[in-house]
Computed example of a mutant assay.
Amino acid sequence: MKQIAVLATNNSISSDLFGLLDFFEYCNVLWQYQQKQQAKPLLHCYLVSPDGKPLLLKQGVSLAVQPHRWQEADAIILPPAYAYNRAQLAAIAQSSSGYFAELQQAAANGKLIAANCTGTFILAASGLLSHKNATSSWFFKDVFQSLYPDVHLQLNKLLVQDGNLLTAGATTSNVNLCLALTEQLVGEAFARQIAKVMLTDPNRSSQIPYMDLSIGQQHNDALVKQIQTHLVKQLAEPFALEALAGQFHLSKRTLLRRFKVALKDTPLNYLQRLRVEHAKRLLETTNQPIEQIVLQVGYEDVSSFRKLFIAYTEFTPSQYRHKFTQEGPINCCPE
């Protein structure tokens, strides 16, 4: 029986902890069903706390932990914790720091080490991701890159494995992370079976189609914020850098410099992101022809916009509409 240790803290997100425990228990149920109840469980997933005492989560839930030697587990998971701004993300690893020395040794011994969402910040703080390929929540990309610049971040990917280290993106990517661990601990065939039972796409590999391109880096440059608002209102208008700079009484050089400092981008690239994001919303919520949508976001040539759209989303506009279209209001409980 393979052992999976979850290195939790009182700040861990409860749904992630229960999700991990439940996923690997589902694996055991499927395995025993296939073996007609005669086989022992495949996997034992258990919670660990830094001090060995029960966990007390933010919701007031108390969870027992097990006194296993987690360093000897076959796989070790650092679950996400509550953190929503730079200060919290920078401090997120403090409550897990007691794990780090033995986590380093476990990694050196070839144990699988996994994390997703804000758990990747904890893994990066341990030093294990230094000069390694990894992914994380795309929403916090700027903070991650500033805190851990020596990590080779691959935010286009939903899940990244570098040696025995596995990282995944935000929230629901934890299911794909569990599938990857199941594949390596049990086998590909079984991982595909449990994916079908749980109605999970095992081939979901990219975060790009899910990114909201209109969400930019937080900054305090009031003038750049004014320009951003102006670009949103003038989405379909022709773009001219010199005219934009003149409208806000700036030189082109100053405009480019301030945009670069505030958003790590150029005004044109920022406008392109806004246009693609608006096109995505129209594709999701209307039946307008592609040609009409292209005009509304400032392009006349469908072919050139199609290339831009693919570069930002990895889908053609038609493919994106097919995947994300909303056919009327969401109805979770149809009669």
Rank of each mutant, 00 (worst) to 15 (best):
D221A: 08
G98K: 04
A124K: 00
L55A: 02
V232P: 05
A101E: 11
I76R: 01
L256S: 15
L166R: 04
H219W: 05
D265G: 11
R306V: 04
F190N: 07
M1W: 08
L63K: 05
N331T: 04
L177P: 12
K2H: 11
L177W: 09
L181S: 09
W31K: 10
I122P: 03
P54W: 04
D201M: 02
Y46H: 13
L42T: 09
S251Y: 05
Y26I: 12
F309V: 06
I194D: 02
E277S: 06
T135N: 09
T171W: 08
S205T: 12
V297N: 09
T254S: 14
A125Y: 00
V197Y: 15
R253A: 15
F309G: 04
H44M: 06
E72W: 03
Y210S: 10
S173R: 05
R192E: 12
A106K: 07
Q66A: 05
I122Y: 04
F248T: 00
V261K: 15
Q71Y: 00
Y99I: 01
L199D: 10
V48S: 02
V160L: 06
H68L: 01
N28S: 06
L308K: 10
Y299A: 09
Y99R: 00
A91H: 12
T254F: 05
Q35H: 13
A243E: 14
P41M: 04
Y270H: 12
N220L: 12
R306H: 13
G163C: 00
P334S: 01
A101Q: 11
L47Y: 03
Q218L: 11
Q272W: 12
P50I: 05
E183M: 09
R258L: 01
A107Q: 09
T316A: 07
D142L: 03
V143N: 05
S15M: 09
Q37D: 08
L112E: 00
A107Y: 13
L21Q: 05
A279K: 06
Q145I: 07
D51Q: 15
E25L: 10
Q247E: 10
A93F: 03
R273D: 03
N176L: 15
S97H: 06
M211R: 14
H152L: 11
L241K: 00
L7M: 02
F121S: 02
A236K: 13
N133A: 14
I330G: 03
P238R: 04
V302T: 13
S130N: 12
L43D: 01
G169T: 07
R281K: 14
I208M: 10
S206C: 09
L155D: 08
L241N: 00
K233E: 11
